[in-house]
């Protein structure tokens, strides 16, 4: 099956007063139709930038594209202009990180949904205007019902501040689904919510996406959340792809030392969590070669000089490392 989203060798920098910040470095990523992909990494690893690049909403005039391309449904989202604008909200939709601030506080929920549908919902040919108001409202109510909001009609008449965080994020998911997209980009959709609500929202997002065959690219720094909903996990470190693997293989046999240390840093019964010494390098002065080399226990000379390519291991497991963790070399420290 061909990829819905195809990102290849994407390098990207932001202009800053201190020089270019190289936020993304040779990123490769593909999302197939109907697939749920988790993009995992620490804050500042470039996952939000990547999400914005796919949506085509990077700050104009501040972004330098070094190399590569992003194709979504065949459209170049980096240089798409009008075509990219048309794709946004129609082929690809968005669930934001902060459901509190992402609504306009002065308009009713119903108005904001109606405007989205007016411009982005699929229309039967030849009836672009008029006669849709009623159908739009019915569709909106059905969708609010699908995201398990009680009394959907009453919700349409409410202002954002009258809903709880979980309710607002459910509305956001409904809005992401209403245009019948092929891909939803969910940028840390549960970070701003209570822990008890997080699992509900993740489960809902997964169920609705699977039912409708919609792909989801889900960014998170929470490995537990990735385990909950993803088919495939992509690990990013400091703007580079470290490891891509199907969910089971990823959690059972992490290959990249960074991934391995990331998993070891999770608290687990019967074992103390182990932190990763050091910090994420600044994108202004990234280390040469593999950007993880200053913190890696397996570092050798080649890691500082040559950027490791993503190499395929068994079972669709892709790792960008000169010294991956394997069955023969299990110990992290060599």
């Amino acid at each position: 099956m061909s990829a819905l989203l195809d990102i290849s060798k994407l390098s990207l920098a932001f202009r800053t007063e201190k020089g270019p910040a190289r936020v993304l470095d040779m990123i490769d990523l593909a999302v197939k139709p109907g697939e749920i992909v988790g993009l995992v990494g620490e804050s500042g690893c470039g996952k939000t930038t990547l999400a914005r690049a796919i949506l085509g909403t990077l700050p104009e005039g501040l972004t330098e594209i070094g190399s590569g391309h992003i194709r979504l449904d065949g459209v170049d989202m980096l240089r798409g202009g009008k075509a990219a604008e048309s794709i946004r909200g129609r082929v690809v939709t968005f669930v934001p990180q902060d459901p509190f601030a992402s609504f306009n506080p002065l308009f009713r929920i119903g108005t904001q949904i109606a405007d989205l549908m007016r411009w982005k919902a699929p229309r039967p040919e030849g009836r672009r205007w008029g006669g849709h108001r009623r159908a739009d409202e019915d569709a909106a109510i059905a969708m609010l019902d699908a995201v398990q909001l009680p009394q959907p009609r009453a919700i349409l008449a409410k202002y954002p501040h009258e809903l709880s965080g979980g309710q607002r994020q459910r509305v956001m998911i409904a809005m992401a689904l209403l245009p019948q997209p092929q891909l939803i980009i969910a940028d840390e959709p549960t970070t701003a919510l209570d822990v008890t609500v997080q699992a509900q929202i993740l489960g809902l997002l997964r169920r609705l996406a699977v039912e409708r065959g919609v792909s989801v690219l889900f960014t998170t720094h929470d490995l537990g959340a990735a385990w909950e909903i993803c088919d495939r996990v992509v690990v990013m470190y400091a703007g580079q792809t470290a490891e891509i693997a199907p969910r089971e293989a990823f959690f059972a046999n992490p290959r990249h030392p960074y991934t391995r240390m990331l998993l070891d840093s999770l608290p687990e019964p019967g074992r103390d969590p182990v932190g990763i010494p050091g910090g994420v390098p600044s994108p202004l002065t990234p280390p040469g070669g593999c950007r993880f080399n200053p913190r890696c226990p397996r570092v050798t000379e080649i890691c500082r000089e040559t950027r490791p390519a993503l190499a395929e291991h068994e079972g669709g497991h892709l790792v960008a490392c000169h010294h991956p963790v394997t069955a023969d070399a299990e110990a992290l420290y060599v």
Partner: peptide, 12 residues
């Protein structure tokens, strides 16, 4: 504001 960023991302 985030609400403008959201609406832009949703293609309003």
């Amino acid at each position: 504001s985030p609400s403008v960023a959201y609406q832009t991302a949703m293609g309003f």
